[in-house]
Amino acid sequence: MFDYLILNCIHRFKGERTVSGIYNLLTGKRSSQTMQDAKGYQVHGYFGIYPNLTRAQLESHIDDLEGKGLISVKKSFPFLTSLGKDHLSSYKGPTLQYFQGMVWHDVIPIYEDRIHLLVQTMANSKAGILNYVPIVEDADVQRWVKAVFRNFHEKLPVLFETLYEEIYHLLKLHSRLEAELLTHRLTGGGMIGMTTAQLREDYDLRHEDVVILLHHTMYYLFIKSKENKKDFPVLHLCTKGLDAAHLITQSARKTFQYIQQGLTMEEIITVRNLKKSTIQDHIVEAALVIPGFSIDSFLSEKDVKDIKEMAVTLDTQRLKQIHEAFSGKYDYFELRLALASSPYEEGKGKAEYEN
């Protein structure tokens, strides 16, 4: 499972990004380079889905894949071998299609904690267990669960049954392996959830497989319930107040606000007392994550079209290749900006970044 994810990243990166690029993507490094890679290579779903991944863990899998002949690594740049391409195309396991890391990676851990603590609290209440240690220590999550109990005190039995039915229904439609892993993780009613180490041993999986499958199932529950309040009211309740990630940095947000006020790049450089390259980074960052952000004052629509078409023709996101193909007609900032333009996701308005 985790190997499939790595192979898919390597496939998408086309040998143009190093192992560090994969690591930065999965751990959600908030740099314009990583975010541009996520968008440009169409792996934004994987952004930030494994924040606790260590470099040693990733390199261990890279070494294994290379040892099996599925990839080859040259100067830290991995690419698929013929055997690796065949292996990827014939993969039959969970396809991890519900990951939407670029949008939701910040809130999924909170959603997961809410569900685990809500299940534990409801199951213990139903079983008459009053004294127990909460499985989630986070004070905000504990307050949220207490508020649910307070607000729905008279409907708790119905709420519990509804939650059970919603989880059961969604897991029944999910992969069996992922459904079983999550079910075994749940604590409550005198039953103690299994640790990732226990799941790894029982299912003969690697630690990273267990983690990534559990994370993916939470994305699945979150997305299904977020978009369908009618069918999954209790799971939808667990999404309340959990909004899409604000990936733009505070400094880039400030630059964006000046642009909205009509200041030119030179004026912003003077007002902010920052290097031109820094302001350019901010503009690219804004183009990457702010829906509807206009770059008309920096590039014409024709220029953007020509740059994007050249990237498609060359089948690359490497700026140097694109720059050489245009014989230096566009500088690197203009190339980055064109490739960054257009939002990676819809549903958030530009206005929320202006305040």
Rank of each mutant, 00 (worst) to 15 (best):
P94F: 02
T95D: 12
T95G: 05
T95P: 04
T95F: 06
L96K: 06
L96C: 07
L96V: 11
L96Y: 15
L96I: 12
L96E: 07
Q97E: 12
Q97Y: 08
Q97G: 07
Q97F: 11
Y98I: 02
Y98P: 00
Y98E: 08
Y98A: 01
F99I: 03
F99A: 02
F99Y: 06
F99C: 01
Q100D: 15
Q100W: 12
Q100P: 07
Q100K: 11
G101Y: 02
G101N: 03
G101A: 07
G101R: 02
G101I: 06
G101H: 04
G101Q: 05
M102G: 08
M102N: 07
M102Y: 12
M102S: 10
M102H: 09
M102A: 14
V103T: 12
V103L: 08
V103M: 09
W104S: 06
W104Y: 15
W104L: 13
W104I: 06
W104C: 05
W104A: 09
W104K: 07
W104N: 12
H105S: 14
H105I: 06
H105T: 09
H105Y: 12
H105E: 13
H105A: 13
H105F: 13
H105L: 05
D106A: 10
D106F: 09
D106R: 09
D106K: 13
D106E: 15
V107W: 10
V107L: 07
V107F: 08
V107T: 13
I108C: 03
I108H: 01
P109E: 10
P109K: 12
P109H: 12
I110E: 09
I110H: 11
I110V: 14
I110K: 09
I110W: 08
Y111K: 02
Y111P: 02
Y111D: 04
Y111S: 05
E112R: 14
E112A: 14
E112V: 11
D113I: 04
D113W: 08
D113F: 10
D113Y: 12
D113M: 13
R114F: 11
R114A: 03
R114C: 07
R114M: 05
I115M: 09
I115Q: 03
I115W: 01
I115L: 14
I115V: 10
H116T: 00
H116A: 01
H116I: 00
H116P: 00
L117A: 01
L117P: 01
L117G: 02
L117T: 01
L117S: 00
L118F: 01
L118T: 00
L118W: 01
L118P: 03
L118N: 00
V119Q: 11
V119I: 15
V119T: 15
V119R: 10
V119W: 15
Q120E: 05
Q120D: 04
Q120G: 09
Q120K: 05
Q120C: 06
T121I: 06
T121S: 15
T121V: 15
T121A: 14
T121E: 12
T121R: 10
M122E: 12
M122K: 06
M122T: 14
M122R: 11
A123Y: 12
A123G: 07
A123R: 14
